[in-house]
Design a protein around this nucleic acid. Structure first.
Lengths: 275, 275
DNA sequence: CAGTGTGAATTCTTTCACAGCG
DNA sequence: CGCTGTGAAAGAATTCACACTG
């Protein structure tokens, strides 16, 4: 409780599983593209390919929405577009405020995909007085002081945080206090919010780190057969690394501060240990 | 088949579950913060809170890495930082190229979090000849023509695509052909890549749409108790849903445009269902 | 028949709860 | 005694495979 939950269980969504909700936008995009090409119907197979998933999953996903297809034929594109849009709540207007108009905030403000689907940038807010009044993406930036008023006046319920990490929680608190109940966070911090407020996070460095993990694994596979072992009590897999720290005197240095270590281009697993 | 798989199963990671891998960066960040404050040890409870997860999950996650904690005490911060960094492959240098230096690309190039952890922006690439030579974030932008050479010369294996959707697949193909095996895609498109290439996608509008879905649900709950019906015959009710569209003549395009009104607590859901 | 819709089987994740170590 | 590490239980999500319908 102290910290408040960052993710609400959400799974309680009456009927649609979270995983499915997360894919609906994907389907919608694929469908929109088909619609623009005036394609009248699609099979689960085709649509699935276009959306980058497999057809069984897609059909299962759609089954949660209802039976919108025609057996032996497929789905009516226009109709599905409408149904999914409605399910996602895109048939209504969602005013959004973006807080933190730095490089990223500006990029977001200019991002076409934003406005394209029901979302409308209602205001751009920045703490720097020098920014106030300056137009970004055709909208005059307003000062943070106005935050509460802006949200209230525009009935905004979705906020985007693109501030430096240090300011994120504070901005978040103000947004929430002002009535915002959904936040898209680009700042690399864990935000604490009260129950009932949804937070989704987009974190560039996390994505890169996940890629690095797999990349490293690939590099290792190239030459190393069965490397990692699952050992429970015996040897911790990659074991042969700095043993227990005792206090912190092994080889911690790695990333904490400097972190200047580097390896050859084709990433060779740091000679952790000769088997 | 032509399209190739977009996501590789990946789950084959010898021992660490994907879900865990995705959280390691989170733990790492929390740990780094502690490290900077010279905190020597943390309990799973404390660290979990800082990372925004629950302690059981964290302990389970760590158990996949090995036994790095001390019962009755907790984890040695420095040591864990090192272990996780190593596991993620951050103890080595990962040169990265960013393709598409528009608003977003520039924001990425300037993003501190990038360089902070093992990642190094090796080059910025853009198709616009006018951009060539212009410095962004202290790095001179290079023309797309150089793409293959740049990747080869720098031994780059991770590429970031920040181009318009239309150019993404093409850029992707060139990156892959040039030897890139991990891609972080910011363009709103599904990329087709050959087996063995990892793609992670970051999509702003998708995130917003997911938020909208929950937001809408909240608004509905406020006044409407059991809205969405779950049953027809007692099972995954599908029964009573809007009937076939015939062609596409229902009510596509509800009130999507204009209308700056906020959610009408309960009156919104367009009366799709005559039932 | 082609292709949806969906129970059932499978696999992955999260959570529980507690034995046991420092 | 406090806290980790982990089997085992519970809960999602994915995949299978096929009955059934337009």
């Amino acid at each position: 409780m102290a910290t408040g939950r960052t993710h609400r269980p959400a799974t309680r969504s009456r009927g649609i599983p979270e995983a499915t909700v997360a894919r609906l936008p994907l389907y919608l995009r694929a469908l929109t593209a088909l619609s623009e090409r005036s394609v009248p119907t699609v099979s689960s197979e085709e649509l699935a390919t276009a959306a980058g998933v497999n057809s069984a999953k897609l059909r299962k996903d759609f089954s949660y929405l209802g039976s919108y297809g025609t057996r032996g034929v497929g789905y009516d594109v226009e109709y599905l577009v409408y149904q999914i849009s409605r399910e996602l709540g895109l048939t209504q207007d969602w005013p959004v405020v973006i807080v933190g108009i730095g490089n990223l905030g500006a990029a977001l403000a200019n991002y076409g995909g934003f406005a394209s689907r029901g979302f409308r940038v209602a205001a751009l807010i920045d703490a720097d007085p020098a920014m106030a009044g300056k137009p970004v993406a055709g909208i005059a930036v307003q000062h943070t002081d106005e935050l509460e008023k802006i949200i209230d006046d525009n009935g905004v319920s979705i906020g985007v945080i693109a501030t430096p990490a240090g300011a994120a929680q504070q901005v978040c608190d103000r947004l929430v206090a002002a009535g915002i109940t959904s936040i898209l966070n680009f700042a690399p911090t864990v935000l604490s919010v009260p129950e009932g407020v949804d937070v989704r996070k987009v974190d560039l460095s996390i994505e890169l780190q996940i890629l690095a993990f797999h990349e490293q694994r690939k590099a290792g596979e190239e030459a190393t057969p069965p490397e990692r072992e699952t050992a429970g009590t015996g040897e911790p897999g990659v074991a042969t690394t700095p043993k227990r720290p005792s206090v912190a005197a092994d080889r911690p240095a790695a990333g904490a501060s400097g972190d200047g270590s580097r390896q050859g281009p084709d990433g060779d697993v740091p000679a952790v240990m000769p088997a």
